[in-house]
């Protein structure tokens, strides 16, 4: 594990991809569609946040399974920090989504609060809210237990149990409720008909770039807390 953490080539790759994302994302040509217009460029930021969040949560649950199999506290530390960084990306996803929605969904004739009620019912937003609530609850559960081993075991169990619910939820809810969100009954931007080929050239590198940035942040946090816990782990 230390081996991959200390490798630096992927950090350079992350920086390069993100520089490319920002420059190409803001300057390159995009198709002009009614209402969306130039806001389509937010695809490289908003959608990537959700992709990065789901990937980070998946890494977190993989480490939770690993902890239950090996009882190695390092896996638990990894699991926790990937979940926290995933939450940060989720919040950023909401922030970028709010900006996007304010140009496309919000009716300028109504007060902002009136639009909020309608937008908050959006299935994609509910799915994201479920994901964030699950991981907030995960953190509350962790902090409520004193014993370190018990904390690791119980929160790993909840992590796996909740994650198993998360995917059906994201799959089921959009099929039950009406939606304005693009890609209403599937995964937006993955469908070949959803996005223009020119945008694909920036979108896929952007997803990889943002995810690598998330992993980078998480590894820094992990290294910090491993240093803090060194006395415990060295035994």
């Amino acid at each position: 594990m230390d081996a991959y953490m200390n490798k630096w080539w992927w950090k350079i790759l992350a920086v390069l991809l993100l520089v490319y994302t920002i420059i190409a994302g803001l300057l390159f040509d995009v198709p002009r569609i009614q209402i969306l217009n130039e806001t389509i460029r937010n695809l490289y930021f908003h959608v990537c946040m959700w992709f990065a969040m789901m990937i980070l949560f998946t890494i977190s649950v993989v480490h939770a399974v690993k902890y239950l199999r090996t009882n190695n506290l390092k896996s638990d530390i990894l699991s926790r920090h990937y979940a926290v960084v995933g939450i940060v990306f989720g919040l950023l996803g909401y922030a970028t989504g709010t900006m996007w929605a304010s140009y496309t969904w919000v009716d300028p004739n109504n007060p902002a609060a009136a639009s909020f009620g309608a937008i908050a019912r959006e299935p994609k937003l509910i799915g994201a809210a479920i994901a964030l609530l699950i991981y907030f609850a995960y953190l509350v559960l962790r902090d409520s237990i004193q014993d370190i081993d018990k904390k690791a075991r119980i929160s790993s169990v909840y992590n796996i149990f909740a994650f198993a619910f998360l995917f059906p939820s994201i799959w089921i809810i959009p099929r039950l409720l009406p939606s304005l969100h693009p890609g209403g009954d599937g995964n937006p931007a993955l469908n070949p008909q959803d996005i223009d080929d020119r945008m694909r050239l920036i979108f896929y590198p952007a997803v990889i770039g943002w995810t690598l940035l998330g992993v980078w942040i998480a590894t820094l946090k992990v290294r910090l807390s491993i240093l803090k816990e060194k006395n415990l782990l060295s035994k």
Binding site: I126, A137, A162
Partner: peptide, 20 residues
């Protein structure tokens, strides 16, 4: 029960899961 908590934590843990 394992976390030695009361029913309140069940609500926190369970509400997001039960929404769908």
């Amino acid at each position: 029960a394992k976390a030695q908590q009361n029913a309140a934590i069940m609500a926190i843990l369970g509400f997001p899961l039960i929404i769908p």
